[in-house]
Simulated assay, not measured.
Amino acid sequence: MVHYDERTPHLHYAFVLVVFDAKKDRYKVSAKQVLTRHDLQTFHDDLDQDLKKVLPFYEKGILNNKTLTFENVAEIKKNNDQFKALKDELANVEENSNDKKAILKITNQELNEVDLAKKQIDSFKQGCLKKHLAKP
């Protein structure tokens, strides 16, 4: 099924690897017996080449330069840990930024109140000065 939930329409290719188990006289799921490590490493490129041969309108390709390559599960976990740490750090930065924005808003309100008080004091001084000069 083609998805349109992102900028570029795309699909997810799902498959189940089934082999016949002669010992038990039935079919079973077994990726290990069907695919090798090399198959998994070259799957996207192979599929891309095959689709380009069969579909004349197919141009973009499977790989979009956003696909990350990893050597092993430990590397994936390491990158996931780094991603989580960066995500947590970003959340902290955003929280601090929101706190600082709130403080800035309060400070601006207080500055406005100080400006208003200054104007009132100046107006009061002007009034007093006028009264003082108006006295005979």
Results as ranks from 00 to 15, higher is better:
residue 48 D to K: 00
residue 57 F to A: 10
residue 75 E to S: 00
residue 43 F to W: 08
residue 93 V to C: 14
residue 114 V to T: 03
residue 27 Y to L: 02
residue 10 H to T: 02
residue 92 N to F: 01
residue 71 E to V: 07
residue 72 N to A: 00
residue 119 K to S: 06
residue 116 L to W: 08
residue 92 N to W: 07
residue 136 P to C: 04
residue 47 L to P: 00
residue 128 C to Y: 06
residue 69 T to V: 07
residue 42 T to I: 10
residue 5 D to H: 10
residue 81 D to N: 15
residue 133 L to N: 15
residue 17 L to N: 13
residue 21 D to Y: 14
residue 39 D to N: 05
residue 132 H to G: 04
residue 62 I to Q: 00
residue 60 K to Q: 01
residue 12 H to K: 10
residue 4 Y to D: 04
residue 89 E to S: 08
residue 6 E to S: 11
residue 118 K to N: 14
residue 117 A to H: 11
residue 134 A to T: 03
residue 101 K to Q: 04
residue 35 L to P: 00
residue 2 V to Y: 15
residue 48 D to S: 03
residue 123 S to M: 11
residue 52 K to N: 09
residue 92 N to L: 03
residue 98 N to D: 05
residue 101 K to P: 00
residue 127 G to E: 09
residue 106 I to D: 14
residue 21 D to Q: 14
residue 114 V to E: 07
residue 15 F to N: 04
residue 1 M to V: 13
residue 85 A to H: 02
residue 29 V to R: 15
residue 108 N to G: 08
residue 29 V to M: 06
residue 18 V to M: 12
residue 95 E to G: 02
residue 91 A to F: 07
residue 36 T to E: 01
residue 26 R to G: 01
residue 44 H to Y: 11
residue 84 K to Y: 13
residue 73 V to M: 13
residue 8 T to I: 12
residue 117 A to F: 14
residue 94 E to F: 02
residue 109 Q to N: 14
residue 41 Q to P: 00
residue 120 Q to L: 03
residue 90 L to S: 04
residue 59 E to S: 13
residue 101 K to H: 06
residue 49 Q to P: 00
residue 95 E to W: 12
residue 63 L to C: 15
residue 58 Y to P: 03
residue 129 L to R: 13
residue 26 R to Y: 01
residue 94 E to L: 12
residue 74 A to V: 03
residue 33 Q to D: 10
residue 24 K to V: 00
residue 119 K to Y: 08
residue 110 E to I: 09
residue 125 K to Q: 10
residue 7 R to K: 07
residue 49 Q to C: 05
residue 85 A to V: 02
residue 93 V to H: 08
residue 54 V to Q: 11
residue 134 A to M: 03
residue 124 F to C: 03
residue 135 K to G: 04
residue 131 K to T: 05
residue 105 K to Y: 08
residue 98 N to W: 01
residue 69 T to A: 06
residue 131 K to C: 07
residue 91 A to L: 03
residue 104 L to W: 09
residue 70 F to W: 08
residue 22 A to P: 12
residue 1 M to E: 09
residue 6 E to H: 11
residue 18 V to K: 11
residue 26 R to A: 11
residue 109 Q to P: 00
residue 68 L to A: 08
residue 33 Q to H: 08
residue 104 L to P: 05
residue 121 I to K: 09
residue 131 K to S: 14
residue 17 L to E: 12
residue 53 K to Q: 12
residue 99 D to E: 14
residue 127 G to C: 01
residue 109 Q to L: 04
residue 131 K to Q: 06
residue 86 L to N: 07
residue 89 E to R: 13
residue 62 I to C: 02
